[in-house]
Amino acid sequence: MPKRIVYWLAGIAVAAGILTVMPLFHVKSLESTRQQAVAAAFDPVAVVDSLWAGELRESINDATPLPELLAALRADPAAAAARYGRRLGLSGTAAYWVSGQGVVTAADDKAVEIAVDGAGDTGIVIRLGPVFGNAIRDGSALLDVNDFASTRDFNALSVEINRRVERDVLPDLAAGASVDRVIRFTGGVEIAEGDGAAATLEIVPYVVAFP
C-alpha cells in the first residue's frame, strides 16, 4: 500500500478518534426524551402540600383587612386593584388576599353569609362547595405562572388548592356556623373589573375560626 494512502488512513483514524471522544452531536431517542418528561411530571399535590402548611400560613398576617380593601375599592377601583390586588397577565379580574371578622347572618347547607365589621353595605358569602376559580392561588400572590413549565401545571395548582379548601376548611365552617356567631376568616377573593362596589363578595377561605 502506498505510504500516502497509509498516512491518509492514519489521519482519518485520528480524526475519527477525536470525534468519538468529542462528538459533534448526540442522538437521543424520542421515547427516552418522552420518558424523561414523564419522570419529571409535575406533582401539584406536593407543591400545594408545601404551600398550604408553609407560605400560606406565614402570609395570614399579610392579608388586607376587608374594610380597608372595600374603602379603597369604593374610592378608586383601579388604584385599589393596583395596590392590593394581583392580576394574572392581561386580566380584567384582580384577586385579593383578605381577612375579616364579623357575625354570621345566615347559614344553610349551601353557604354562610357574614356581616363583616366595617364592610358597609357589602355582604360577604362563603360557599360550602364546590370551590372553583383561582382566588387563593392568585390572591395570595405566592405563585407565579412564569415559574411553571405550562399553564396546565399552574392550573392544576388551583384545582388542588380548591380541593384542600373543601377538605380541610369548609367542614369546620359548616359545622360551626350558626346565626349570630362571631367568625374570623382569611382567604382569597376575585373581583372583576368594574365590580369594585359589588353588593356581595364571595370569599374562598384558607382559615376560619370562631373566637
Partner: peptide, 10 residues
C-alpha cells in the same frame, strides 16, 4: 419580557 402573559377570557 414576562415569559407567560395570560390574557383573560370572558
Amino acid at each position: 419580557f414576562q415569559q407567560k402573559m395570560p390574557v383573560a377570557v370572558e
